[in-house]
Nucleic acid binder design. Structure first.
Lengths: 116, 116
DNA sequence: TCGTCGTTTCACAACCTGTTCACGGCCGGT
DNA sequence: ACCGGCCGTGAACAGGTTGTGAAACGACGA
């Protein structure tokens, strides 16, 4: 029996087959690319996904040279998610590798020193 | 079916092939060098590893003269680990020999005031 | 044809990393 | 305690990577 895929991540719910994502029950207005990218990331919650893989999954073609599409859409997603759920950060950058999807509070207890 | 290498050290989990390390489940943001060095140390948990060996393992070339890279990265690692898991010390210095990776409580019994 | 919306490309700013220095503190042998 | 060498640490630098706003493009419906 084929179930409807529903991805849950904290207060975010993604229903790829319905082209829909909700934040705290409220529907987000995402374009096709944005939703596909979000789903691709969310399906692999917790692990780092490279740009090549994301591009092939979402765009359905191999990533050519210096294509920045993934970055641009990650940016769009972040913006919309930040408006809908400001207290969470969902997409993390791993320099040199790619992105990781995982809900984390946006204001950790900022403590002792240092950057990162 | 040994496929993904996973190094566990107390509350620290290192997955070199995924470019990822987690402290208590929370992902650390480490650079390539940092992660490689951490993995190189963790693979030899409990034993002293010399700078030459560490350098060759991580940098893939013989250690030249007075290169301090290993020291610098040990420092960076210690900082990040201390933020993530303050109650543990992972990297120990063996004067004149090298470093040893092994999780140990950071304040065995009491705190300051004693010994000094 | 025009306007709108989504996608792609661009340019530049901002950031991150690896590397090397320099200085000072710590260690161990004497 | 003294001294020379080993280590810890912060900072500066050059390059490469990523963030970001806006323009260019294109499909579609009014």
């Amino acid at each position: 029996m084929q179930q409807v895929e529903i991805l849950n991540a904290g207060e975010l719910e993604i229903r790829p087959s319905e082209h829909l994502a909700r934040a705290r029950g409220r529907a987000l207005s995402l374009s096709v690319r944005e939703l596909d990218l979000l789903a691709a990331l969310a399906r692999r919650e917790g692990s780092i996904v490279g740009r090549e893989e994301l591009y092939e999954t979402v765009w359905g073609a191999p990533l050519r040279g210096a294509d920045r599409s993934v970055d641009v859409y990650v940016h769009k997603l972040r913006s919309k998610l930040a408006i809908a759920l400001p207290e969470w950060v969902f997409i993390h950058t791993h320099f040199g590798f790619g992105y990781r999807f995982q809900p984390e509070p946006s204001h950790p207890f900022h403590r002792s020193s240092t950057r990162q």
